[in-house]
Design a protein around this nucleic acid. Structure first.
Lengths: 344, 344
DNA sequence: CAGCATTGTACAACTCGCGGT
DNA sequence: CACCGCGAGTTGTACAATGCT
């Protein structure tokens, strides 16, 4: 005899007892599987409603899928990453799949721990936005879980990638600044591990393009790369340092919008207007369009990136085995934060 | 005979075979349970490392806990909510628990679907930040899963709450504006369902306090409540409408910072400076401190809210049954967006 | 004996109490 | 007594087997 649980959560057995049918029959009803009479469906459905029964995904996952897509992200407080996740969530709307996000702990950086936690939770697909996890480790994970890496340009057949074209984007920035007449252009980017060539990270590509553009323009001597540490207010500090140095740059190409906001704040505090120091960001978060900010930036369609990523995962889950690499074209949006340099 | 799996994911049985011990023994080793000899621990650990074994949480959850805390949130793109989640993530650091976030699909509003999805995934604790889910429904869920509601002032013993004191906060705002000499003060808040008295939502409390303060100051005739719809650019539109009306307000108390940013944008576009229309936000997202924005706001410690919420959940999981209701004091931060009205 | 609907039962991966050496 | 393993239990799936017209 089956005893109903104390905590009020009905099991499939409770439903079966109530409807006077077998567990298997109820299982078929909830899965819309073949071989159920209208009468049986009727009785089972009634019992399900009465008991408020919901199948547990973890028990389900034991035999098959969890219908869960996991997203590993380094932080929740970058609006651009939020847009990517929103795009993915929208794409999954209407499917049986649900998205869960596992943000890295503030201060922590790696992302491996979060990915492992998601794998432990048996996600059917994994979306990774971490710039630092090693490619070979990811390839290992991809042996058992479909993975799509967002942002990084990894050359691999083990998992899919969705990226913006960072070379095109950064070239747009540099051409814009050079055309305006800037020569002392600095670049603000992430810490070393996040731009290493081994991980083909977006920031690494932007940095590389910056260096190349400067060299091509004969401005090697003016190359100046400032790297962020783990601190919260780091971009602010670095910008201050730059503009207060002996030969301050007339323009700063910042690796991402969130840091560019801090740079603008530093310039304001230093009493410098955008005609004195131009600033360009990257990503195109909505705030850049705010009249008070008006930041020239490279706009990437974050929602589209996320939607593509989700679609690729569903395809992989559906059986695709050939790798897919999607690359989206960014566009430069010129706003008030850039202008001709006063002095060269 | 046990056959190793094709996908490369080792099970506890694989480990047991490899180490030449029983499944139960391996289980004890990974749980640090009582009754394992050093030799056994040694051999089991070695086998675990060699196979790269990781216990699956879903199989574990079948018997006990999933060591997962679920967070339901209406959107990822409100930085204040991100701070709450970050605070919770930090608090869980060092415990066996992991946090996963389930954002509602953009456009969708309810939050019930997300909570159900998390319950289906057998979270050990649930943090809800949705203003609209009904209290009684939540109480039902709380019968089987510990819940902490963040933001809402629900009077219930079924689950815990962590809130800012919205009455104090909104009173600070109104006193500030009234002291400056404002009389035509408008309030911008959420749609009707999100401020209904039945759900003791933060925005409802702020609205209520606004109305009460206006009445207390003898300004009933100037009460003007503008409600947001589901549209993206709604706050902007509403602000435009307000300032272009026949008797425009001299101050706008906006229910949250993210919308206040849109209001500022509208004022800029309408050519109105902050001396002409004062604006106050709520929450204290970091951007309000940016010199370009300089928004007067009520600052709540989002990280602290999240940390408290996580701690309360761990306590409930640990066995506490008496309800806990934490209320944090907010503080008013006066910045450039508010000033004396030019004309009254 | 088709041709259905329905049930029995073997899993899946792990935990844990109890009994055995 | 300290250590170790058996086996039942956890929920749902899927396939084989049964029952019924």
């Amino acid at each position: 005899m089956h005893r109903s649980r104390a905590d009020g959560l009905a099991t499939i057995q409770d439903v079966a007892d109530r409807a006077g049918v077998s567990r298997a029959a109820v299982s078929k009803v909830i899965r819309n599987a073949y071989g159920v009479s209208p009468g049986m469906r009727e009785r089972a459905s009634a019992a399900i409603d009465e008991l408020g029964y919901r199948p547990r995904t973890y028990a389900r996952a034991l035999r098959g899928s969890s219908f869960t897509i996991g997203v590993e992200m380094p932080t929740l407080s970058n609006p651009f990453l939020s847009m990517i996740v929103e795009g993915a969530t929208s794409e999954l709307e209407g499917t049986r799949y649900r998205l869960i996000a596992a943000p890295a702990a503030p201060g922590g950086v790696e992302g491996e721990r979060e990915i492992e936690a998601l794998v432990d939770r048996q996600v059917d697909g994994l979306m990774a936005i971490s710039p630092v996890v090693s490619k070979s480790w990811l390839e290992g994970q991809a042996r058992h879980t479909p993975i799509v890496m967002v942002g990084r340009h990894d050359q691999t057949s083990a998992y899919d990638t969705v990226t913006g074209d960072d070379i095109v984007g950064a070239t747009l920035v540099m051409d814009h600044l050079l055309t305006l007449g800037h020569r002392r252009i600095a670049h603000l980017t992430l810490r070393e591990e996040a731009t290493a060539p081994s991980v083909a990270s977006p920031h690494g590509k932007r940095l590389l393009t910056y260096v190349r553009s400067m060299a091509d323009a004969g401005l090697e001597e003016h190359i100046r790369v400032s790297r962020l540490g783990p601190g919260d207010d780091d971009a602010y500090e670095h910008a201050m340092e730059l503009v207060r140095s002996e030969h301050p740059p007339t323009a700063i190409f910042v690796g991402s919008d969130v840091f560019a906001l801090d740079v603008l704040r530093a310039l304001d505090d230093a009493g410098l207007s955008s005609t004195e120091v131009s600033v360009v960001g990257y990503d195109g978060i909505s705030l850049t369009a705010h009249p008070r900010i008006s930041l020239t930036t490279v706009e990437q369609d974050g929602r589209m990136l996320g939607a593509h990523a989700a679609r690729l995962l569903l395809e992989r889950i559906g059986g695709r085995t050939e790798p897919a690499h999607v690359k989206l074209e960014p566009r430069l949006v010129i706003r008030g934060s850039t202008s001709k340099p006063l002095r060269t």
